[in-house]
Every structure is written in structure tokens, then in C-alpha cells.
Design a binder for these strands. Structure first.
Length: 598
RNA sequence: CGGGGCGUAGCACAGCCUGGUAGUGCGCUCGGUUUGGGACCGAGAGGUCGGAGGUUCGAAUCCUCUCGCCCCGACCA
């Protein structure tokens, strides 16, 4: 490929609306352009990279028995109504009508499509397991697209689904996918960790996220350097020191606390309490639906004063109260000020759970057994002290609700020396779920088992964002000059840069090397533009081709050219006659380092 | 959805407060010189100033509405 005729619109300056590194570099290096918020056009270089990532994924899926499908991006509403997700997905789903007024949506994911085929055509345990996947465009009308390719409204996803007859089969399928995912990330040059994750709207029993540590990420991962425990903070737990409460036999006592509104206020108030001896009381509302009916269920949440509520955990706990009699929780939100006063008879800042019976009370595990606590009295400007939780408060449900904090103890470590948790930002590059029977139940996907009995299919689902892998690779591999592409993902493996096209000998040598590399099957880009050396070198560095062969008049007089490794930034002089062979070797080595020897 | 910011040439921006011929740098085209880390000289092309309405003799500039984009939060397989 000749650069002079290849479309690579590089930019000298950072576009003003790009914030994260990968976004800036994708734009500057001429890989993408934005069409609308969260919607991007992939230019030729990006398309080459995306195809490479897709092929790595395809190879690894096929290696674990995956069969590639291709489902439509446009789905009839009925399919989603059946699974109950037509309403659950809310405004995140792009919806449209056909000419007859029929409802359709653009697919956010494809559980329904795959399950539909499965229920119509899988009849017997003898056909199982099945491992199905596709690489397809997904549409999600995200509330806030951001960070270039990291959160978009249209993207490519590899989604895989497994169907097994029993839990043991699912465990096996899940493990195979997990291993395939590890291979995929390794081959794409991504350092990753596998973490325990919340299943969220997907439902199901267990899930693992594949995370890449980067500040461009949107998730927080808590990890233990000692035992390797790692979990999304939406799910992570920790062990914390026990607080000494004394004997706590005294009866609860109301006392005036004028103008005390916050935990902080009460710490500083004469006769107040330390944060870890306070109970924080928060009113939330669970919103649920059944068919077209909606229902609000307010509830009270209790945490230790110095702890922060975790929304994902809270939502799960609330769902436990609400999801019954056909109701499904669709959201949990903080109660409005008026709602709080109507329910509690006091304003936020003076709330408490003592004596509360008309609202469900969900309490954080860290409060279990605590005594001598201070909390709001449900009378403005008054608090209660000497509160013993189990004696004075009617707790509907105990649950782990708090967000773990860096420096707390690891929940998994045993023995006298417990690891200390680290919390760091990470980007989710893949998520695998044990779904169980969530969709096979709602959509009636059943097969006969060996006893001739009809049982629901046991499902797993497994997703990877293809473009997000590209962006993550750039987040991880770049320097001030530009991208340092892992060779497996790079649009071209090597660029040949004659530094002066007007010098006949330079041009002839470059022509020769280019043609030999091409003949040898190397993915080579020939920078035959009549540009100055600085422009060519800067562009090659910016786009981040793994290797460069630089051909200039000075070194050519000694019969040498320069071989440059973009990742290590090492240059070495090599004889013209050996340049092609050295390039081939280095490319092979680099490929093997990532792909392993096949 | 709440908060903040920004829309002026392909890119980055100035001009707006205080209304009066639409500018600068880079990029682009042509000619010449130059050629190992984003050259130099000269001559050019390129603009519905996001859109609509209003005020005014006159609006990029003031007012109203509106659309879009970015960031923080909420939200989010």
C-alpha cells in the first residue's frame, strides 16, 4: 500500500473536544471521525485494526467450538416484550416504527434472538452443549456517550451464548469462554484482570468482568495484592475492624441537636458522636412495573455514618423486597425532599429508623449488632443516642450495601496477615455471565433431558466490545509521539520511509525494499509521499506502526538503512541487503510474543 | 435528566464586553529555493460566523427561542 494514495488524514494538533488519550490519538492519527455524539466513522486504518481484532476473536471463539451466526440489528418489539426487556431497557433502546405502525427496535444485545432460535430448534439434551456467537453492531442510546470509542451509541460486539442441559455443563462452557477471553486479550496486547462483577440488568447468578487498568475507565476495581482477590466495587467486599460499643444497655434517649444536618455536623456537635458511631438513614424509592402498571415503594436504608452507599448493591437489595407477585423493579432513586417529609415527618438530616414500621428498612451488614449508636429522631433538630440496632430498630433485611474503600482489609485473605485492598480505575473490555434460566424461562426454551422430562436450557452469555479493545490497546500503548500499536492490532506491521524521494538512490532502495516486503507477505505501508523527513517520521510515530525502515542518503552511502522499533524506540543500522530479512524476523518474533507459538 | 462550557475556513483559535469592510497560525493550491525529526520566500483558494426570530440605519457582536457538541454528575451488560 502506498501512503501517497492511502487515506490517512493526520492532524498536527489535538482536536479540542477529545479528552482521553485514545480519543485524541484515534482522531489525530486519522483512524476515526465523529458523525454524531457517540457515533463514529471508521476510516481505512481503523477498519484494518478492527478487522484484525475481530479475527482474533473469531479464531478464539472457533477454537472453543463456537459457531458463528449473524442476526439482524433490527428487531420486532414482540421479541423484547416476551422477555420483559422492552420496558426494562427504557430510553436506552433506540425504537422505531415501520410503515404499518409496528414497533421495532435496534438491537442492544441478542439474548432474545438467540434464545428464540434455541427454543424453536433445540429439543433434546443430545444436541447440547451449543456454543453460538456473532460479531454484530449494537445500538444503545447511552445517556452520556463519552471518551471517543470507549462509550458509544453504536458499536460492534462479539456476543456469545451457550446452552447446556445442567449447571455442570454451564460451568464447563463458562470456563471455556473464560479461557478464550484470556487468549483474546493477551493476543491483542492488553494487560487485564478478571474481577467478580455485579450481574446488573442481565440477571443470572455469576459474572466476571475483564478489566484493563486505566484512568480512562469508568469502573473501580478493588484488588488484593496478597491473594489476588479482585472485584468491581459494585460488588467488592472488605473486612473492617470491629468498633467497640461498650455494654450499651442504656435506653435510647432523644436530645436536641439544633441545626445539625450532616454526619459532619453531628461529629462536631457537643454531645454528638464519631462518624463510625452514627447511623446514616437514607430514604430511597424503588420503582417497579407489572405490565403497564407502575408502583413506587419507598424504603429506608441504614449505613454507618462514615460509609458510602453503593448504588448497585442497594438496587439488588431493594429488588429483593420488590420483585414479587409479578412486579419487576426498574429503578431505584433517592426520595425527593417532599416525599421524605411526608413519609418520615422530618427532613433529611434528622431521619432515623427507630420506631419505623410503615417502611421497609434495609440495613448494611456493618451495622449488625451495633449498640450505643446515634441517629436521627425523625423530629427535626433532634437525634437519639444509645440506640442498639437489634433492640430498637425493626430491620426488614440485612444486606451488604457499602462501597469498599482503599486500605480496608481483603475479604478473602486468611491468617494473621490480611491483605490491604487497593482501589483503582479500570475499563471493562468484556463481561461473561452465567445466566441460568432467566431467558429460557421467560421465553419457554426447554428441551427433554435423559429422563424424558422437559427442562429449561441453562444459558451463559459472553460479550466483548470490539472497538473498545482497539481503544484500550491505544490507552495502554502510547507515548508523547503517538500510538505504539501491538503488532496484532496494528493496521500495518511496518512502514517504509524514504526520507528524501528526490534522491534517486534513496527512492530506488525504498522501492526495492517495499516490493520485497510485499512479496514476502508482510503488511507494509510505503510512505512514498514527497514530504520532508520530519513529516514522515512524525506521521509514522503518530500512527504507531510497530516497525519502520528509514532510508536516507547519509546512511545509504555506507550501504545501510535504519530499522526502528516503535515500542522500544530503539533504532539500529542494518545493511540494505539484510533489511527485509531482519524485518521479517522481528515481525515474526513480535507476533509470536503475543499470539504464542501456534 | 441536573450542573458547567463551547459552536467563527479542513484543524486550533482571536474578534463579541463597548454593533460599523470577518482575522491569525497550521493545513490546502501554484511558482521558486530547500531536503534525516512537522522548512523558507512569493502568489492564491477557501466563511449561510450552528439555525430561526427580534432590536437597530447597520448584528459574528445585543435580546429571545432553538439545534448540536464536550466535560462533571445521575444513568449504564
Amino acid at each position: 500500500m502506498r501512503w501517497s494514495n492511502y487515506f490517512i488524514p493526520t492532524l498536527r494538533e489535538d482536536p479540542s473536544d477529545a479528552e482521553v488519550v485514545s480519543h485524541k490519538l484515534l482522531l489525530r492519527a486519522g483512524l476515526i471521525r465523529q458523525l454524531a455524539a457517540g457515533i463514529y466513522s471508521y476510516l481505512p486504518l481503523a477498519q484494518r485494526s478492527v478487522l484484525k481484532v475481530s479475527n482474533i476473536i473469531r479464531e478464539e471463539m472457533n477454537a472453543v467450538g463456537g459457531q458463528e451466526f449473524f442476526f439482524p440489528a433490527i428487531h420486532p418489539a414482540e421479541l423484547w416484550q416476551e422477555s420483559g426487556r422492552w420496558s426494562v431497557m427504557g430510553p436506552n433502546m433506540f425504537r422505531l416504527k415501520d410503515r404499518k405502525g409496528g414497533d421495532y427496535c435496534l438491537g442492544m444485545t441478542h439474548e432474545e434472538c438467540f434464545t428464540d432460535i434455541a427454543r424453536n430448534h433445540l429439543r433434546s439434551y443430545k444436541q447440547l452443549p451449543q456454543v453460538w456467537y456473532q460479531i454484530q453492531t449494537k445500538f444503545r442510546d447511552e445517556a452520556r456517550p463519552k471518551s471517543g470509542l470507549l462509550r458509544t451509541r453504536q458499536f460492534t460486539m462479539k456476543d456469545a451464548y451457550t446452552f447446556d442441559i445442567d449447571q455442570a455443563g454451564l460451568d464447563k462452557s463458562f470456563e471455556a469462554q473464560r479461557q478464550a477471553y484470556c487468549n483474546i486479550y493477551k493476543r491483542c496486547g492488553l494487560d487485564f484482570v478478571i474481577v467478580d462483577a455485579d450481574s446488573g440488568a442481565m440477571g443470572g447468578s455469576a459474572s466476571n468482568e475483564f478489566m484493563v487498568y486505566t484512568n480512562a475507565g469508568e469502573d473501580m476495581v478493588a484488588s488484593c495484592p496478597k491473594c489476588g482477590y479482585a472485584a468491581n466495587t459494585e460488588k467488592a467486599q472488605s473486612s473492617i475492624p470491629v468498633v467497640d460499643d461498650g455494654d450499651g444497655s442504656e435506653a435510647a434517649e432523644k436530645f436536641p441537636t439544633p441545626n445539625v444536618r450532616t454526619i459532619e455536623d453531628l461529629i462536631n456537635f457537643e454531645g454528638g458522636a464519631a462518624a463510625n458511631k452514627q447511623i446514616k438513614s437514607l430514604v430511597y424509592v424503588s420503582v417497579a412495573e407489572k405490565g403497564s402498571e407502575f408502583k413506587n415503594t419507598p424504603f429506608l436504608t441504614l449505613l454507618r455514618g462514615d460509609h458510602q452507599v453503593n448504588d448497585a448493591k442497594l438496587s439488588n437489595a431493594a429488588a429483593g423486597l420488590v420483585n414479587k407477585d409479578g412486579w419487576t423493579q426498574t429503578a431505584v432513586r433517592p426520595a425527593h425532599a417532599e416525599e421524605i417529609f411526608d413519609l418520615m415527618g422530618a427532613h433529611a438530616g434528622s431521619l432515623g429508623a427507630v420506631g419505623v414500621t410503615k417502611l421497609p428498612v434495609i440495613a448494611d451488614e456493618a451495622l449488625r449488632g451495633r449498640r450505643n449508636m446515634t441517629t436521627g429522631a425523625n423530629v427535626d433538630d433532634h437525634h437519639l443516642r444509645n440506640v442498639s440496632i437489634e433492640r430498637d430498630i425493626k430491620v426488614t433485611a440485612w444486606s451488604d450495601l457499602r462501597t469498599v474503600v482503599e486500605g480496608e482489609g481483603c475479604p478473602k485473605c486468611a491468617g494473621p496477615e490480611i491483605g490491604t485492598l487497593r482501589v483503582a480505575k479500570a475499563l471493562e473490555v468484556g463481561h461473561i455471565f452465567k445466566l441460568g434460566t432467566k431467558y429460557s424461562d421467560s421465553m419457554g426454551a426447554r428441551v427433554l433431558n435423559s429422563d424424558g422430562k422437559e427442562v429449561p436450557l441453562i444459558m451463559g452469555c459472553y460479550g466483548i466490545g470490539v472497538e473498545r479493545i482497539l481503544a484500550a490497546a491505544i490507552e495502554l500503548h502510547n507515548d508523547e509521539a503517538g500510538i505504539q500499536f501491538p503488532i496484532t492490532v496494528a493496521p500495518f506491521q511496518i512502514v517504509v520511509s524514504p526520507l528524501n524521494m528526490k534522491d534517486a538512490e534513496v527512492k530506488a532502495t525504498a522501492d526495492g525494499i517495499y516490493s520485497e516486503l510485499t512479496k514476502a507477505g508482510v503488511e507494509v505501508l510505503y510512505d512514498d509521499r514527497d514530504e520532508r523527513a520530519g513529516v514522515k517520521l512524525n506521521d509514522a510515530d503518530l500512527v504507531g506502526f510497530p516497525f519502520q525502515i528509514r532510508i536516507g542518503p547519509k546512511k545509504l552511502k555506507e550501504g545501510k538503512v535504519e530499522f526502528y522499533d516503535r515500542a522500544t524506540r530503539q533504532a539500529e543500522d542494518v545493511l540494505v541487503a539484510q533489511a527485509v530479512e531482519i524485518a521479517r524476523q522481528r515481525i515474526q518474533q513480535a507476533l509470536q510474543a503475543l499470539n504464542g507459538v501456534k
